[in-house]
Amino acid sequence: MMLGLGPEEWQAVLLSLKVSFWATLVSLPFGVICAMALARGQFIGRDVLNWLVHLPLVLPPVVTGYLLLLSFGRRGPVGGFLYDTFGVTFAFQWTGAALAAAIMAFPLMVRAMRLAIEAVDPKLEEAAATLGASRLRVFTSVTLPLILPGIIAGAVLAFAKAMGEFGATITFVSNIPGETRTVPSAIYAFLQVPGGEDAALRLVVVAVFIAVAALILSEWLSRRVARRIAGK
Protein backbone atom coordinates (compact mmCIF):
# COMPACT_ATOMS: atom_id res chain seq x y z
CA MET A 1 0.00 0.00 0.00
CA MET A 2 2.80 2.33 0.96
CA LEU A 3 4.37 1.77 -2.46
CA GLY A 4 1.14 2.96 -4.05
CA LEU A 5 1.69 6.51 -2.80
CA GLY A 6 2.63 9.01 -5.46
CA PRO A 7 5.29 11.72 -4.98
CA GLU A 8 2.68 14.36 -4.19
CA GLU A 9 1.08 12.10 -1.59
CA TRP A 10 4.45 11.23 -0.05
CA GLN A 11 5.23 14.90 0.16
CA ALA A 12 2.01 15.50 2.10
CA VAL A 13 2.68 12.58 4.47
CA LEU A 14 6.27 13.65 5.18
CA LEU A 15 5.22 17.27 5.66
CA SER A 16 2.47 16.21 8.07
CA LEU A 17 4.99 14.17 10.06
CA LYS A 18 7.41 17.11 10.17
CA VAL A 19 4.72 19.61 11.16
CA SER A 20 3.26 17.32 13.84
CA PHE A 21 6.69 16.40 15.23
CA TRP A 22 7.73 20.02 15.71
CA ALA A 23 4.30 21.08 16.92
CA THR A 24 4.44 18.37 19.61
CA LEU A 25 8.06 18.86 20.59
CA VAL A 26 7.88 22.64 20.97
CA SER A 27 4.57 22.63 22.86
CA LEU A 28 5.69 19.83 25.21
CA PRO A 29 7.40 22.01 27.88
CA PHE A 30 4.55 24.53 27.77
CA GLY A 31 2.11 21.64 28.14
CA VAL A 32 3.91 20.29 31.21
CA ILE A 33 4.02 23.74 32.81
CA CYS A 34 0.33 24.38 32.09
CA ALA A 35 -0.66 20.93 33.34
CA MET A 36 1.36 21.43 36.55
CA ALA A 37 -0.18 24.86 37.07
CA LEU A 38 -3.71 23.59 36.51
CA ALA A 39 -3.27 20.44 38.60
CA ARG A 40 -1.36 21.92 41.52
CA GLY A 41 -1.27 25.69 41.25
CA GLN A 42 -3.31 27.97 43.45
CA PHE A 43 -3.20 31.38 41.82
CA ILE A 44 -5.54 34.08 40.61
CA GLY A 45 -6.38 33.54 36.97
CA ARG A 46 -6.23 29.75 37.17
CA ASP A 47 -9.73 29.53 35.70
CA VAL A 48 -8.79 31.95 32.94
CA LEU A 49 -5.78 29.80 32.04
CA ASN A 50 -8.02 26.75 32.01
CA TRP A 51 -10.43 28.43 29.56
CA LEU A 52 -7.60 29.66 27.35
CA VAL A 53 -6.10 26.19 27.11
CA HIS A 54 -9.44 24.63 26.28
CA LEU A 55 -10.66 27.36 23.92
CA PRO A 56 -9.31 25.76 20.71
CA LEU A 57 -11.29 22.64 21.59
CA VAL A 58 -14.63 24.47 21.50
CA LEU A 59 -14.02 27.29 19.01
CA PRO A 60 -14.70 26.55 15.34
CA PRO A 61 -11.23 25.71 13.91
CA VAL A 62 -11.70 28.32 11.22
CA VAL A 63 -12.11 30.95 13.94
CA THR A 64 -8.90 29.81 15.62
CA GLY A 65 -7.15 29.95 12.25
CA TYR A 66 -8.42 33.43 11.55
CA LEU A 67 -7.38 34.64 15.02
CA LEU A 68 -3.92 33.20 14.36
CA LEU A 69 -3.81 35.00 11.03
CA LEU A 70 -4.76 38.28 12.72
CA SER A 71 -2.18 37.99 15.49
CA PHE A 72 0.65 36.01 13.87
CA GLY A 73 0.36 37.40 10.34
CA ARG A 74 3.23 39.55 9.07
CA ARG A 75 1.33 42.69 10.07
CA GLY A 76 -0.29 41.20 13.19
CA PRO A 77 0.86 42.36 16.64
CA VAL A 78 2.72 39.15 17.52
CA GLY A 79 3.77 38.20 13.99
CA GLY A 80 5.05 41.71 13.26
CA PHE A 81 7.11 41.74 16.44
CA LEU A 82 8.60 38.31 15.73
CA TYR A 83 9.45 39.30 12.14
CA ASP A 84 11.03 42.64 13.12
CA THR A 85 13.02 41.17 16.04
CA PHE A 86 13.97 37.63 14.96
CA GLY A 87 13.07 37.59 11.29
CA VAL A 88 10.67 34.71 11.95
CA THR A 89 7.47 34.44 9.94
CA PHE A 90 4.59 32.01 10.31
CA ALA A 91 2.15 33.09 7.61
CA PHE A 92 2.05 30.70 4.65
CA GLN A 93 5.03 28.72 6.01
CA TRP A 94 5.21 25.16 7.30
CA THR A 95 6.10 26.69 10.70
CA GLY A 96 2.68 28.35 10.67
CA ALA A 97 1.10 24.96 10.05
CA ALA A 98 3.05 23.65 13.04
CA LEU A 99 1.86 26.56 15.18
CA ALA A 100 -1.77 26.00 14.20
CA ALA A 101 -1.44 22.26 14.88
CA ALA A 102 0.21 22.89 18.24
CA ILE A 103 -2.52 25.29 19.37
CA MET A 104 -5.27 22.91 18.29
CA ALA A 105 -3.61 19.90 19.94
CA PHE A 106 -2.69 21.73 23.16
CA PRO A 107 -5.94 21.04 25.11
CA LEU A 108 -5.62 17.29 24.53
CA MET A 109 -1.97 17.29 25.58
CA VAL A 110 -2.60 19.28 28.74
CA ARG A 111 -5.59 17.14 29.68
CA ALA A 112 -3.67 13.87 29.53
CA MET A 113 -0.75 15.32 31.49
CA ARG A 114 -3.00 16.92 34.06
CA LEU A 115 -4.70 13.59 34.79
CA ALA A 116 -1.29 11.97 35.33
CA ILE A 117 -0.16 14.75 37.65
CA GLU A 118 -3.37 14.61 39.65
CA ALA A 119 -2.84 10.89 40.17
CA VAL A 120 0.47 11.56 41.95
CA ASP A 121 0.05 11.74 45.72
CA PRO A 122 1.51 15.07 46.97
CA LYS A 123 2.35 13.22 50.18
CA LEU A 124 5.15 11.48 48.29
CA GLU A 125 6.63 14.85 47.38
CA GLU A 126 6.38 15.89 51.03
CA ALA A 127 8.27 12.75 52.03
CA ALA A 128 10.95 13.48 49.43
CA ALA A 129 11.44 16.98 50.84
CA THR A 130 11.93 15.63 54.37
CA LEU A 131 14.63 13.35 52.93
CA GLY A 132 16.61 16.37 51.75
CA ALA A 133 15.33 16.92 48.19
CA SER A 134 14.96 20.53 47.05
CA ARG A 135 11.79 21.45 45.16
CA LEU A 136 13.53 20.97 41.82
CA ARG A 137 14.96 17.61 42.93
CA VAL A 138 11.53 16.54 44.19
CA PHE A 139 10.15 17.27 40.73
CA THR A 140 12.92 15.50 38.81
CA SER A 141 13.25 12.49 41.14
CA VAL A 142 9.63 11.81 42.17
CA THR A 143 7.02 13.76 40.23
CA LEU A 144 8.54 13.52 36.76
CA PRO A 145 9.28 9.77 36.80
CA LEU A 146 5.75 9.09 38.04
CA ILE A 147 4.08 11.24 35.37
CA LEU A 148 6.49 10.45 32.52
CA PRO A 149 4.20 7.89 30.87
CA GLY A 150 1.38 10.45 31.18
CA ILE A 151 3.52 13.08 29.49
CA ILE A 152 4.35 10.69 26.67
CA ALA A 153 0.67 9.75 26.35
CA GLY A 154 -0.22 13.43 26.11
CA ALA A 155 2.46 13.95 23.48
CA VAL A 156 1.24 10.99 21.43
CA LEU A 157 -2.34 12.27 21.52
CA ALA A 158 -1.17 15.75 20.54
CA PHE A 159 0.84 14.30 17.68
CA ALA A 160 -2.19 12.41 16.37
CA LYS A 161 -4.37 15.49 16.69
CA ALA A 162 -1.74 17.59 14.89
CA MET A 163 -1.65 15.05 12.04
CA GLY A 164 -5.36 15.60 11.54
CA GLU A 165 -5.52 19.39 11.88
CA PHE A 166 -7.26 21.00 8.95
CA GLY A 167 -9.55 23.97 9.57
CA ALA A 168 -7.21 26.27 11.45
CA THR A 169 -4.26 25.30 9.25
CA ILE A 170 -5.94 26.03 5.92
CA THR A 171 -7.31 29.34 7.24
CA PHE A 172 -3.99 30.46 8.67
CA VAL A 173 -1.43 29.20 6.15
CA SER A 174 -3.53 28.14 3.17
CA ASN A 175 -2.89 24.98 1.15
CA ILE A 176 0.47 25.32 -0.58
CA PRO A 177 1.94 22.05 -1.94
CA GLY A 178 5.26 21.23 -0.30
CA GLU A 179 4.92 24.03 2.26
CA THR A 180 1.60 23.81 4.07
CA ARG A 181 -0.27 20.98 2.30
CA THR A 182 -0.51 18.40 5.07
CA VAL A 183 -2.39 15.10 4.71
CA PRO A 184 -5.85 16.52 5.50
CA SER A 185 -5.30 19.50 3.20
CA ALA A 186 -4.06 17.15 0.50
CA ILE A 187 -7.13 14.91 0.87
CA TYR A 188 -9.30 18.02 0.55
CA ALA A 189 -7.36 19.19 -2.53
CA PHE A 190 -7.54 15.75 -4.21
CA LEU A 191 -11.29 15.65 -3.68
CA GLN A 192 -11.64 19.00 -5.45
CA VAL A 193 -10.23 17.68 -8.76
CA PRO A 194 -11.77 15.00 -10.99
CA GLY A 195 -10.02 11.63 -10.65
CA GLY A 196 -8.41 12.49 -7.31
CA GLU A 197 -10.49 10.01 -5.28
CA ASP A 198 -7.90 7.20 -5.42
CA ALA A 199 -5.13 9.41 -4.07
CA ALA A 200 -7.49 10.77 -1.41
CA LEU A 201 -8.43 7.24 -0.37
CA ARG A 202 -4.78 6.19 -0.03
CA LEU A 203 -4.14 9.17 2.23
CA VAL A 204 -7.27 8.36 4.24
CA VAL A 205 -5.87 4.89 4.94
CA VAL A 206 -2.57 6.41 6.08
CA ALA A 207 -4.39 8.89 8.32
CA VAL A 208 -6.54 6.17 9.91
CA PHE A 209 -3.48 3.98 10.48
CA ILE A 210 -1.54 6.73 12.22
CA ALA A 211 -4.52 7.80 14.35
CA VAL A 212 -5.29 4.27 15.55
CA ALA A 213 -1.63 3.53 16.30
CA ALA A 214 -1.40 6.72 18.34
CA LEU A 215 -4.53 5.88 20.32
CA ILE A 216 -3.30 2.38 21.13
CA LEU A 217 0.10 3.71 22.18
CA SER A 218 -1.53 6.35 24.36
CA GLU A 219 -3.79 3.79 26.06
CA TRP A 220 -0.87 1.49 26.73
CA LEU A 221 1.13 4.32 28.25
CA SER A 222 -1.79 5.37 30.46
CA ARG A 223 -1.97 1.87 31.86
CA ARG A 224 1.75 2.06 32.60
CA VAL A 225 1.15 5.23 34.65
CA ALA A 226 -1.37 3.38 36.75
CA ARG A 227 1.00 0.45 37.27
CA ARG A 228 3.94 2.67 38.12
CA ILE A 229 1.93 4.62 40.67
CA ALA A 230 0.83 1.32 42.23
CA GLY A 231 4.50 0.32 42.62
CA LYS A 232 4.24 -2.88 40.56
Partner: peptide
Protein backbone atom coordinates in the same frame (compact mmCIF):
# COMPACT_ATOMS: atom_id res chain seq x y z
CA UNK B 1 14.67 26.93 57.00
CA UNK B 2 13.06 25.00 54.12
CA UNK B 3 11.99 21.41 54.73
CA UNK B 4 14.84 19.83 52.79
CA UNK B 5 17.51 21.71 54.75
CA UNK B 6 16.21 20.95 58.25
CA UNK B 7 17.98 17.56 58.50
CA UNK B 8 15.03 16.01 60.32
CA UNK B 9 13.88 12.53 59.43
CA UNK B 10 10.12 12.11 59.16
CA UNK B 11 8.23 8.85 59.41
CA UNK B 12 4.60 9.35 58.42
CA UNK B 13 1.57 7.38 59.48
CA UNK B 14 1.41 5.92 55.96
CA UNK B 15 4.80 4.73 54.79
CA UNK B 16 4.91 6.92 51.63
CA UNK B 17 7.41 4.73 49.82
CA UNK B 18 8.19 5.86 46.26
CA UNK B 19 6.31 3.45 43.99
CA UNK B 20 8.63 3.90 41.01
Amino acid sequence: VPVHKRRLGYVFQDSRLFPH
